[in-house]
Design a protein around this nucleic acid. Structure first.
Lengths: 170, 170
DNA sequence: AGTTTATGTCAGCCTTGTTGACATTCCAAG
DNA sequence: CTTGGAATGTCAACAAGGCTGACATAAACT
């Protein structure tokens, strides 16, 4: 199970891309690529007192303005206490605005302020620049494959969250 | 720069996959997929007193047996203090063996013990299973595209490290 | 002999996860 | 209407695993 051809590759040629060696390479590719993926925003964030968690919060609030804390919790997959600390500093610094829900006053609806949108833009621009350059290098067909593999690798629940975001955007 | 067509997409149809919206979706796909990618090993690791950092160390020691600490440091991109803490526990627990170099006796060459290989196998099997299922779902062409995009997204230095590993493996 | 390199260790800090305890608000069953 | 449970959010304390800085050791190089 650990070495040689994967247990699933029973026949020949057609499934040669499923050898353990190929899978291993996929794993390492993900590891190194994710490092590159986060490197540029991380550099910007470390100039301020923020970290990757702040980036994630700002990103998804920008993506779904007015979203509730609970909503964000599900997308980010962290505990509410962990998210709360990040939100608290973002609110204190005037990047995020928290509005008490009109229908259900237990809920807090989150919006970026102008200053928040500014930071989001800087971070996104940096991250998009790298992705744009990668996409341009490899062409649309490779990009389509990339997206299909990533989608197949997500947990079912995240697949749904991802699709929902995709459809809400534009 | 922040909304609408990316600044790089000057002409029409052929570069439509470089809109900010498309890039945004790529970013979110990476985020959600990476969560899935680490979820299975994380579950196994949390049963013991180990974390993702231990997984990474064990993975790359398995991949390049006899590698030195310095080598590992470069691949993992952390400080020696951070790596050392992890290695210390792995060695103390008898999963990793550290041998003084024969040519240069300042170096420590790292190897997995049988017990270490056992853990590595459990973790890799879990991670490979997910990747195998994703690869099988989408087919070889999409996988090739996936790998090409990831490679293009890495920092130059990591690209070299990745290629070296790829070529050393079978 | 003196310098550089590879490694390990100690101390202390920060971010970002975690759990537990608690406050507020809503809603539904009595 | 009241009361109890569920949902939501906040505060406190702790752990993992990054980081820097300082320092020790041993070996190699000049």
């Amino acid at each position: 199970m650990t070495n040689g051809r994967s247990s699933g590759a029973i026949s020949g040629e057609s499934l040669l891309f499923l050898t353990d060696e190929q899978l291993q390479q996929g794993i390492e590719a993900m590891f190194f690529a994710y490092r590159g993926f986060t490197a540029d925003p991380d550099r910007i964030l470390s100039e301020m007192a923020y970290g990757r968690a702040h980036h994630r919060a700002v990103h998804f609030i920008n993506r779904s303005p007015g979203t509730t804390v609970n909503n964000l919790l599900n997308i980010l997959g962290v505990t509410k206490q962990s998210l709360n600390r990040v939100l608290r500093t973002l609110i204190a610094d005037g990047l995020v605005e928290s509005r008490v829900g009109e229908i259900d006053r237990r809920e807090r609806h989150l919006h970026l302020t102008n200053e928040g949108r500014l930071l989001e833009g800087r971070l996104s621009d940096a991250q998009r620049a790298r992705m744009r350059s990668a996409f341009r290098d490899v062409g649309p067909d490779a990009v389509a494959g990339f997206r299909r593999v990533l989608e197949a690798m997500m947990d079912k629940e995240m697949q749904r969250a991802y699709t929902r975001l995709k459809e809400s955007g534009s």
